[in-house]
Structures are given as structure tokens and as C-alpha cells.
Design a protein around this nucleic acid. Structure first.
Lengths: 338, 338
DNA sequence: TCCTGGCACTCGCCCGCGCAGAGTGCCAGA
DNA sequence: TCTGGCACTCTGCGCGGGCGAGTGCCAGGA
């Protein structure tokens, strides 16, 4: 059905359309790519491709535009991820290296991705559930108020205020702190609740309420909202979306404001390997004219979070995928070092 | 020069233009506001207002549009801040009350502002230099790596990694921790460096390098980049900017991506009272067609940070100012309570 | 069987035209 | 000082025609 040449035609259409943003016709195609056949032949192939739903004609006597299905085929079978150039890689490395803390790493990553791909970049903070406990700190703020500070191996810090039903002595606090760290230190977050469950029993009955309060706050913060945090950048690139963009850009901006949507978007990313979702493959209405390229990143083999970019379906997939992959790799390295 | 009626005409023009987004003519004016005079008279007044630069005619035979100068006069002398309704205030209160930590307070504030004003909202985290030290924590991560965690009275937490030239003993760390808290605890950040300056001398010569390293990191983080953090929301509202907006929206989005620009914008806000900057009064080119309404907020009399909104110069100033002021007040209260 | 050149056809885009409507400025009169 | 009237100016919009890009189809050739 789809012989070599038809695939070549599709590839050429995608490439040209991405470059020019305009429907591409048979004549222009043969001129720009040496397909070795005449426009008439290409026209026949185009007809077949359209029949099969890979390309589409906005109106009679216009050129062809790839459909989502066409891009899908292109990404799956026709495109090679384009690696970054050595200077580019060096620049990335250098830029990320000078980050001073986790916030900075994430912020720089977002900027970098947005600049390299000229699209909207999204970076998820290393997820708590994939991280482990580096340290738990307890501070008495007031007689019945304790601040709980949680530091992860990825450098993330979470704080919470715990209200104690009874005044808390410094000795109890010190004891609790020591025990928490002894039991939970170095452990993965998901394991933590089980490890600490019977902790109150190690304390005097009088002190158990505060121990319980601290524990419940701790457990909460492991699963809650703050679990997943996201940073966004390059929204100005939305303006390069297309001619008709007032219509397109609005729902996209709205979607980007919804952390939930972004989280779901990244959540659907495979842990290993890159995920590309194109147009209507994304099940969020406002994003049906966009594509998302995302990938997990992490310090070891394992991914601790995801990052990616969002752009028009008409995007340079090979280049974007190259940039996303490279950035993910370097961020992983940086995290491993710190 | 500007008698009562001319001012009334200007006020009417601003109100109508904000409502309709279209140049307003003399006839429509008399119809909508009972000015008690004929269109011809209004035309004369308009002529005078134009002469003085308060309004402007896009082209002959079009209605009039206020200039930046016109909006300025409107804000300064013709507009009354419009207080929010009781249900609105209750809703704000309630929405902010359910915040669980500082991040959440800021995030909710941004959402709220954006929703109330239907514009882009900016909220600055409580600034370090206006805050005081609640607690300093030191954690040994590795023999030569110490994590410095700084907790402020506004609930903000900053962390930094300190590389020590020599391995650090737990006793030294405990000693340093105790002394840091004793001397700096409860103090304003700007005072801190002076208070700690001679701290290394209290230690054995062998330990002084690490003390110095911790101190310099601490001092750095008091003045540095992270000093000022900002949260942004409601960018989707940019799409309601105007008809010609591809041109307008681009530079605005770009400006919003630059933390520096936003910080400067908020930085120029007066500590007390509201600041309104209109169009070309803002010395950033991309924002010359926008206005910024900003105000300080804080737990006591004193402002610890700023917040505000950015919208088209053609905005509902009274309403916006009312919302900004109300939100600032409630955020202050929330912060004071936690 | 597949490719090619030729040809007629279809549409969207652009341009110029003319008209209607909104709004103004000015003037003479109350 | 205000008002009604009037002539004038300009934009926006709808209309129609010409242009060009691109197609589909067909007959002939490898």
C-alpha cells in the first residue's frame, strides 16, 4: 500500500510544511527534493496518501497538509532524532552546571528547553514519591507549633506547620527527630509510612499525640498536592504558533495555567524513552492542535520526574526530540552530582 | 482650563471606552450619560481635551480614545476605588484561608487576583530583606558538604549547599548551629551580617574555614537572586487584550518571562498605598501598552512584598484597584496568622 | 504496469470600486 | 455660552473580476 516512494513523499511534505507553514504542492515538492519523478507522479502518490488519511487538502486547488496521522507515521517511521551539535551540548552542560540549587536547576532547564526548541517548556520537579529522605528536621516555633522540614535526596525541601494538641518539650522533639532520621533516613518515600507506623509506641503516652500529629502531617505531605510541582517557560513562543492564532492560543494558555492538566500530560509519559503525543492523541480539548514531546529524567537509570515541550503539531519533531532528550540527560547528570 | 464638565466628559469617555473597546463619539456619549448638554457642546469639550493631550483621535471622523495622560488624570482625580462586595470579600477570605503553606498562599493569591481582575496577576514572595530569621539549620550531607536551611518568619525556606574545605565534625556543626540561632534568631536579615561578622573568632582556628564558608553562603543567599521570587498567573487573560493583539501580546509575554523585569516593576511600587503606572510611564518597551496596578502587602503595618496586576491601559481602574487592595489586605492577614 | 506531459478546471486570494455610516468641525442663531 | 444644522472626511464592508497555484484526468510511452 505505502511503498517507499509514497513514504518519501510524505516525509518531504512534512518537512516542507514544517519549514514554510504553507500547504505544499506537487511542483514545489519535486523542485525541493530530488524525488526523481515528475509532479504528476507525486500527485498520484498524494492522492493515495490522502485516501489513507495521512495528508489533507484544506480546499480544492490548495496544497496538502499533514494530518495528525501523517505526523504520527512520520515520527514513528520516517524521522530520526536529530542529535545536538557538540557546541550546543557544551553550552547546555555549562549553563546547567552553574545552577546553585534545585530551584535554579529547574529554572535553567526550563529556559534552556524553551530556547532550544523555541516552544513552551515544562519541567516537573523531582517527584517526592520517587525520591528518598535525606533528612527530617523539626523546629519548635511556639509551644504548640512545630515546623516540619523535609529534605530529599534530590535537594527538594518541603515544609509544613504542625499544630500540637499539647505543648511540646525540646527533649521530646530531639528524641523524635533522632528516631525519624534513624528510621526514615535514606529510605524511599513510599516505604516511609510503614517504617514509622509504630513510632508513637516508643514514646511516653503523654507525648504520643504530638508524635502522631507530626507523623500524619509527614504522611500527608508525601502524597499531597505539593507532591507534584511544575515549572513552565517560553510561553512567548506561543505567538509563533500560526496565523490564525488568537483562536488557537487562548485554550492553550488556559491549559497551561492548569497544573492538573500539565501533570496529567507529563504523567502519561513513559518512564523510559521519549513520548510524543500529536494533536488529537492528547485528550484535552484545548491542546488538540498541539503536540507534546516528553521524557523522564533522573539521576540513575530511573526517572524521578518528567520534562517536555509543547508546540504546534506542525513542529520540527527530529530537532525537538533531540533537544528534549539531550536536556533530560544532562539534568539527570547534574542531579546525580549534587 | 478644565472645568467640571470637561472632566465629566473625560470620565465618561474613559468609562465608555473601557466598556466598549471602541473609540467613543459625541453622540453616543450624551446618550449614555446624562451630561445635560448637546453633542455639539461635547464636541467642543472634546476638542479642548484633545488639545491638552488627554484624548486622541485615531483618525479624522473616528471617535476619541483616552491617552495615557487621560487615564492618568482619570485615576488621579476622577476615579474612586471600587470596593468589593461583601460576598466577594467573603469568598476571598475563605479561599485564602484554606491555604496549607506559603507556596499555597502565594499560588492562591495569584489565582484569585487573576480571576477577580481578569488580568495577569503577579505576586512576590515575602522578601527576605524585609523578613527576619526564624531558624537556621545545618545538616551534614557528606563529610565536606553541609546543607544550610534558612527559615523566615514569613514561612519561607531557603536552602543552600555549602562545600567545606575540610571535613566537618558534628560537634562543630552543633556549636555553629546554636550560635547562629542565638545571634541571628528573630533578627531582620539586613542586620544579620553585622551580628555574625566576628563569629569565626569564637571557634578554634581549625574550624574557622567551615564557619567562614557557611557564613559567606548565608550572606550571599540574603542578597542574591533567590532573594526575590515571583509567581505569575492569568496569562490566558492576555488573549482578551484587544483586536490587534498578536502584535501587542508578544512583547508582553516576553516581558513576563523575565523575572528581572517583573521584579523591577514591583520594586518601583510605593511601600504604602497603591501604585498605578500607565502605558509609557512604564520604562519597559514591551509594556508600553499596558498598565500596572501594584501594592505592598505585609503582616503588620509594614510591607514584606508586593503584588499587582498587569493589563491593557484600557482597563477598569476602579475595579482593578479595589480588587488589588482587598487581596493585599487579606494576604497580609493570613500571613500574620500563620 | 507504471510513469509522464499536457490540458482543462476549480478555488482562494488580492485588488479596486463604490457605498453607507459614523463622527467631526464650523457657523449662524438663540 | 450653548445649540442645531450642514458639509466634509474617513473607515469598513460587500462586490466582482482577474490571477495564479494546484489539482485530476487522460492518452501516450517505457
Amino acid at each position: 500500500m505505502l511503498d517507499e516512494r509514497k513514504l518519501a513523499v510524505l516525509r518531504a511534505i512534512v518537512q516542507d510544511y514544517v519549514g514554510t507553514e504553507e500547504p505544499v504542492g506537487s511542483k514545489a515538492l519535486v523542485e525541493r527534493h530530488n524525488l526523481g519523478v515528475s509532479p504528476a507522479t507525486v500527485r498520484n502518490d498524494m492522492s493515495a496518501l490522502e485516501e489513507d488519511g495521512y495528508i489533507h487538502q484544506p480546499h480544492t486547488s490548495a496544497g496538502r497538509v499533514p494530518t495528525d496521522k501523517g505526523y504520527r507515521l512520520f515520527v514513528d517511521r520516517l524521522a530520526e532524532v536529530k542529535p545536538l551539535s557538540a557546541p550546543e551540548r557544551r553550552a547546555i552542560r555549562q549553563f546547567l552546571d552553574s545552577a546553585v540549587d534545585l530551584d535554579d536547576v529547574v529554572a535553567r532547564t526550563v529556559r534552556l528547553l524553551a530556547q532550544l526548541t523555541r516552544q513552551v517548556a515544562v519541567v516537573q520537579y523531582p517527584s517526592l514519591s520517587r525520591s528518598s529522605v535525606r533528612h527530617v528536621e523539626l523546629l519548635a516555633l511556639a509551644p504548640t507549633k512545630v515546623m516540619l522540614v523535609l529534605i530529599t535526596n534530590t535537594g527538594r525541601v518541603e515544609q509544613r506547620i504542625v499544630d500540637s494538641p499539647v505543648p511540646v518539650g525540646e527533649t521530646v522533639l530531639a528524641d523524635l527527630r533522632a528516631r525519624l532520621n534513624a528510621r526514615a533516613g535514606g529510605r524511599r518515600f513510599p516505604e516511609v509510612p510503614a517504617l514509622l507506623q509504630d513510632l508513637p509506641e516508643a514514646f511516653e503516652p503523654d507525648d504520643r499525640p504530638i508524635v502522631a500529629a507530626v507523623l500524619s502531617t509527614l504522611f500527608e505531605s508525601l502524597v499531597e498536592r505539593t507532591e507534584e510541582r511544575i515549572m513552565l517557560g517560553g510561553t512567548a513562543n506561543l505567538t509563533r504558533f500560526g496565523h490564525d492564532f488568537p483562536l488557537t492560543i487562548r485554550p492553550v494558555l488556559e491549559a497551561l495555567e492548569e497544573q492538573v492538566v500539565l501533570l496529567r500530560l507529563l504523567g502519561e509519559t513513559a518512564d523510559r524513552g521519549m513520548t510524543v503525543r500529536i494533536g488529537h492523541e492528547i485528550d484535552h480539548e484545548g491542546l488538540n492542535s498541539t503536540s507534546v514531546v516528553s521524557v523522564g529524567y533522573g539521576s540513575g537509570d530511573e526517572s524521578v520526574a518528567k520534562l517536555g515541550v509543547i508546540g504546534p503539531t506542525r513542529m520540527d519533531y527530529p530537532g525537538t526530540m533531540g533537544a528534549v532528550r539531550a536536556v533530560a540527560r544532562y539534568v539527570g547528570q547534574i542531579l546525580a552530582e549534587s
